[in-house]
Computed example of a mutant assay.
Amino acid sequence: MTSSTATKKSMNRLKEHLDLMKQELNKTNKQIKQLENKNTTEWKGLDKVDGKSIDDLKQHENDIAKEIVKIQKEIKKSRSKSLLIAELSVLPAVFLLIFMSGITDDLLDSSPENPVGHMKTRYFTENLRGDTVDTWKSWRLTGTTLAVNILKSPRVTDHQLDVIHNAIASEKTVEFDDSIVHKGPKGTTSVYYQGWAGALKSASKEDTKYQVPTDFNFINSSGGEGDIIITLSNIKDSDGYTGYTKSVTEENEILKSFITIYDISNLTDDQLGTIVRHEFGHALGLGHSTATEDLMAPTIDMTIPYISECNVDAMADLYNANEGRQTVCEK
């Protein structure tokens, strides 16, 4: 068995494991919902599901989420290994191409202006496309508005609230050179969105099966009102997470999402805005990206902390009933 075949089989096993974990997460979410709705006639008096209490299920849910992140990292690592094997296989041809192109004349030029030992070099880059963003579940709205309730602690400032509002409701865009994140040669650019409102309005230009949420109604209530509830905590997460999103679902529909941002007093404005964008992406139905520099990567890279064109494409796919799939990035 060749190394490339072994890597491919390993990748397939990881993807199968990932699918199983996602199915288990969906099942656990349903069980939690059953216990949370135990006051209804159907579930009245229900304290456990399959012998597990709601605390047991929530712990199981957290363990599954960690396992999913771990598997996604392994898939990324296996994919990188496959690319390396592919690159090594073409090295002889590249080396021959270098000689045929006359670049060696620059390297070995022994003129007085360029004595041997002072070598000139050239390089080329190849744009390796194919990174993906996972789609999970979507909201099924009759309109285009989601209610967002921000629960703040006493230490949260009005300025921090403005940063959060901007990360969600801004329609501003910014362009970055593709060479910054190795997505293209210097001089080509990509558009990034500073807030989800702008990104979602771009996604809504596609003809999708379900309404893409493009408007947000911010409310300030200490209760459980709202579709997406954001809790701002001064506490550090024991596992080191900066944010956490939990969504209550029914089949492929998101019914409610809960976002927690940790250690908010020690976050810079850029960090806070980026974490909110990332977690809000989960609350809207996106999973993680295999591109390490993407906003939706499992570990957030602050190089370009904004919503990418690939995230927009993934959102359009998701709301066109392509749940539980992967959107392939064009760059």
Rank of each mutant, 00 (worst) to 15 (best):
T208P: 01
I229A: 06
I254K: 10
K9P: 05
T231V: 14
F218N: 03
H282C: 08
I275K: 06
T132I: 11
A6N: 15
N311E: 05
G198A: 00
L146F: 01
T245D: 15
L20S: 07
K331T: 11
T5F: 12
I300H: 08
T125E: 13
K22W: 14
K66D: 11
N29L: 08
V181W: 07
M302W: 10
N114W: 05
I168W: 00
E330L: 15
D109M: 01
E42P: 05
T125I: 13
T290E: 02
N37V: 03
F124G: 14
E36N: 10
D50C: 04
I54H: 10
D162T: 11
N217V: 06
R325G: 09
T242R: 14
C310K: 13
R129M: 10
N322C: 12
Y241S: 11
G285C: 00
L84C: 04
H278G: 06
Q23R: 13
D263Q: 05
T274D: 09
E279S: 06
T40W: 09
S289T: 08
R129I: 15
T303I: 05
S247C: 14
G281P: 02
D237P: 10
T242L: 15
T208K: 02
I304V: 13
L232Q: 09
N320W: 00
P213R: 00
E309Y: 13
L267R: 09
H165C: 03
D19T: 13
K236S: 08
E16C: 07
M1V: 13
G285R: 03
T327E: 01
I68F: 00
M296G: 00
K58I: 10
M21S: 12
S265Y: 14
T245M: 15
L84R: 12
S89R: 07
L83H: 02
L88F: 11
T125P: 07
A314L: 10
G102S: 04
V163M: 04
M11P: 15
S89C: 08
G223T: 00
A203N: 02
I219L: 04
V174Q: 04
D134N: 09
K73S: 12
V49T: 02
D63W: 11
T157N: 13
N26Y: 14
Q271W: 09
N37I: 05
L25H: 06
D105C: 09
G187E: 01
S190R: 10
N220G: 12
I150K: 00
K38P: 04
D158M: 08
Y244K: 15
T188V: 05
K331P: 10
K331L: 15
N39K: 14
F258G: 15
M315G: 00
K120F: 09
N320P: 02
L97Y: 12
Q326R: 01
Q271R: 12
T188C: 02
L267P: 10
E330I: 15
I75V: 07
K137A: 11
D239A: 15
D301H: 03
V163A: 02
A169N: 05
I229W: 05
E126C: 07
D50V: 03
D237K: 11
N320L: 01
